[in-house]
Structures are given as structure tokens and as C-alpha cells.
Design a protein around this nucleic acid. Sequence first.
DNA 1: TATATATGTTAGCATCGGCTAACTTTTGAG
DNA 2: CTCAAAAGTTAGCCGATGCTAACATATATA
Lengths: 156, 156
Amino acid sequence: MTKLQIHGREASDASDRDAKAQAEGFATVRQAHESEMAEDYVELIAELIEIQGEARPVDIAERLGVKPPTVTKNISRLKEAGLVSRERYRAIFLTPEGQKLAEACRRRHRIVVAFLLSLGIDEETAERDAEGIEHHVSETTLEAFEAVVTRAHEKH
Amino acid sequence: MTKLQIHGREASDASDRDAKAQAEGFATVRQAHESEMAEDYVELIAELIEIQGEARPVDIAERLGVKPPTVTKNISRLKEAGLVSRERYRAIFLTPEGQKLAEACRRRHRIVVAFLLSLGIDEETAERDAEGIEHHVSETTLEAFEAVVTRAHEKH
DNA sequence: TATATATGTTAGCATCGGCTAACTTTTGAG
DNA sequence: CTCAAAAGTTAGCCGATGCTAACATATATA
């Protein structure tokens, strides 16, 4: 097949690689979206257990801004995924795996918020943006954020 | 109703406000997700028109890492939304509104990438993370990013 | 110009994560 | 202890965004 055709694709190897890398990037974002629900829930459940001693659907629904049936449905998905344990009508607990994920999410969240604050962004915006950004930050970028925060603290 | 009950919610006004703010944050993230598809498509269409002279479904599919029928379906959604114009089996064009959105997205994308690079992150990771992050960056945060990039450039 | 191949569309399906309405269970106040 | 209200669940709906299989159209080359 001849190269550089007008319609029949395959312009060059370079743009093929570009396209592939781009496609992988979008795939990564789509995967991140799939785990966002789980991450948001376990993070919130850990938070609620810490401040209230237990996590109940009604509180989760209120804080996520969704209705109780949505929470019920998603909690059962998390149970299937092995992240939470629970019996009908009872409070929700994290499995060891869920705790591990929650801990990682909370660390990441803290770092992203601290990083945004260190740029001079106001607290409310920092929290809001962090909520969306945190799910899309690679470990590499997270470490860079952490370094900035540390440096900002050193300069007190 | 008495306050600070074990089961009957309403712990305090402060935590009520917290919960509300948190819920709004999650709502913002969900809204961002709804516009992500449109933003990714118009951004990519503008890019393809620039580098190839036209945007065809096959290229969009390849670069997004999805199958052609998905592109057909989403393009028709964008057409309904008034962002693209097109006739069956022909290349895709952006309406003035679509061009405006594409331009805003590309500017935001450029800033986020430049910002991550200025933190010392490698190009591939910067591109990958930017793809996910860009949809969740408020104008406030974007300006802070821009300022960091500008300062980094000034330092030669 | 005829036709094989590349491109594009349609139809039909699945999953995810929202919702409302209606029902069940738990809880706490009287 | 009873029973009303709060909390939780179930059933059934919707829209978004993916997919495959089958079909339609356009294009380029023999």
C-alpha cells in the first residue's frame, strides 16, 4: 500500500505512533472514570467512619449529592468488588482492600489540595478542583506535586 | 428534634454546610464528565483539520481509541448540540460555536501541559495526565497554572 | 469503467450511574 | 410496648457511551 494517500490512511509511522499514544491516553482517562465511583465511595466511607464512627447510606447520599437508591446500588457493586462488607439495613464497613484503597485516595486527595493551596488558590476552589483532578493524577505527577508542597513548607 | 442523635442525623449546622459543599463539588465533577465527550471531540476535530485538512470518523476513532460506530453516534450528538456540521459519509466540520469551544479547550490543554512540564514531568506523562486533568480545572486554577508557566519562562 | 476495499452507518445489545415510586425494616418517642 | 417516622431497599425507568454484526456508500485501482 502506498504511503501518504489522501483518503487511504497510514500517512506516516510517526503519526501512527502519535495516534496510538493519544488513544492510550484517552483509554487511561476512560479507565479512571470507571474507578472514580469506587474511589469516591471508599474515600467518603473512611471519612464518615472517622468523624461519625460509622458510614450510613443516608450520609453518603447527602455528601455525594445523590439519592439513597443510587447509593444502595453502588454499595452493592462495591461489595461485589470486595471493597466493602455489609449486611442489609446495617452500616457499611471497608474490607482490608477497601481500607487500603481509601488510604491511598485520601493521601492523594490531601496532596492535590495542599498543592493547589500552595499555588495561592482559595480553599473552596482547591477542594472543588481536587475532587475532579485527583482521579487523573499519575504517581509521577503526584510526587512532583508533593515536592512543590514540601518546598513551600520549607520556605515556611 | 434533638441534636447529636446517634441515628437521627443532623449532627450540626457546620457539618451540614460541609456536606452541602461536598455535594456541590461532586455535582460539579459529574457535570464536567457530561461535557468531556464534546470537549474531547471538538478539540480533536480541530487538531485533525489543522494537521490533515479534514476530520474523518476513522481518524477520530483511531485517536480516541474507540470503534467507528461510537464516533458516528457521538458526532450526531454533537451535531444536535450545534457544535459540528456534517452530511452523511462526508468529513466533519466545526460550527462557529464548535470552533470557539475547541479553541478554549486547546488553550486550556496547552496551559495544563506546559504547567506539568514546568514541574519537571516528562512529556508523555504530562500529555497523559493533562488529558484527564484539563476537564476539571477551574478558570481560577488555570490562571494560577498560567502564572507558574510564565514565571518559569521568565527565569529564562 | 468496474469492482474490490476502505470507510461510514444502522440496528441491537450491555453497562454504568443517575432517578422516582412503592415497599420493608429499623428506630425512637410517647 | 406500640406505632409513626426515618432509613434502606426493590423495581423499573432513562440517557450516555461503549461494543459487534450486518449493511451501505465512496474511492481508487486494475
